Amino acid sequence: MRGNPITGAGYLVKGLKMLPDPEIRPFVIVPLLINVVLFIAAFWVLFSQMGGWIDGLLSYLPDWASFLHWFLWPLFALMVLLVAYYSFSIVANLIAAPFNGFLSEKVEKRLRGELVVDEGWKALLAMVPRSIQRELAKLVYYLPRVLFLLILSFVPVINVISPLLWLWFGAWMMAIQYCDYPMDNNKVSFGQMKLLLKQERLTAIGFGGLIQACMLVPLLNLLIMPAAVVGATLYWVEAHAGEERPLPTQGRLNRA
């Protein structure tokens, strides 16, 4: 696999550092508020239900593997955290999608040295239909794969490695979630966006993986949504913008 996970993770770090920039700061506020509400709701549900969910998953282990409980409990806890977060993110990202797209657009103008101005609610509302459509495309991509992983999580023996599969898949989905905003703004189709990320998959995994890790850090996790949008836009401008790339063929899209 091509790419560099350190490079990918570095884009999120750059995104965090860019949040205080006075030219983009006004466009960070709404995604930030949505993320705060998301985490308050997610942590309330998790801390009241997580223990029961993990015990339920461990109950599917055969008796001879009971000695693995101490090892699997933290891995399953991490898996539950990721599943719960992404489930809440589906709702949050549907709400935040136009604001995230708007933020990405302003960040790209800032990076290109163009004047960054607030074009008002009309410009934002114009993005709503397209943003919702892209979020639904991500949901269609996500659901069958997460259902497959859920099934694996209940299969004896295979479920031992399922937390690692969840980590990998979660990192990939985080990269897709946030890199889609700048690519959608630049009229890159959802299929071509996946193809571009797959060409340097390790870079995308490094970016999405650090997003996952930061989500588990109190207070820092509140900044992750806008920071990830900014970082993904930096990734687009530095790695992909301006490159001449052919549209993927249907066969290649089916494998993406």
Rank of each mutant, 00 (worst) to 15 (best):
M18I: 03
M18N: 05
L19H: 02
L19A: 02
P20T: 04
P20W: 01
P22K: 08
I24M: 02
I24S: 01
I24H: 02
I24V: 10
R25E: 07
R25P: 03
R25H: 08
P26W: 04
F27N: 08
F27K: 07
F27H: 05
V28S: 04
I29M: 07
V30E: 02
P31F: 03
P31K: 04
L32G: 07
L32A: 09
I34A: 06
N35I: 06
N35Q: 14
N35T: 12
N35V: 04
V36I: 15
V37G: 11
L38K: 14
L38S: 09
F39V: 03
F39N: 08
I40K: 08
A41N: 06
A42I: 01
F43G: 06
F43S: 09
W44Y: 11
V45E: 08
L46Q: 11
L46Y: 13
L46C: 00
F47T: 11
M50T: 09
G52W: 02
G52V: 05
W53M: 15
I54G: 07
D55C: 03
D55T: 14
D55S: 15
L57V: 09
L57P: 02
L58Y: 09
L58Q: 13
L58R: 12
L58W: 09
L58C: 08
S59N: 13
S59D: 14
Y60T: 14
L61W: 00
P62H: 08
D63E: 15
D63L: 13
A65P: 04
A65L: 15
S66I: 11
S66L: 11
F67Y: 15
L68D: 11
L68F: 13
H69D: 13
F71L: 15
F71W: 09
F76M: 13
A77T: 14
L78M: 07
L78Y: 11
M79I: 00
M79C: 02
V80P: 01
L81T: 07
L82M: 14
V83K: 04
V83C: 01
F88G: 12
S89P: 00
I90G: 03
V91P: 00
A92I: 05
N93Q: 12
N93G: 09
N93R: 07
I95C: 02
I95V: 15
A96F: 07
F99E: 06
F99T: 08
N100W: 07
N100D: 14
G101C: 12
F102R: 12
L103F: 11
S104N: 11
E105K: 14
E105S: 15
E105A: 15
E105W: 12
V107W: 07
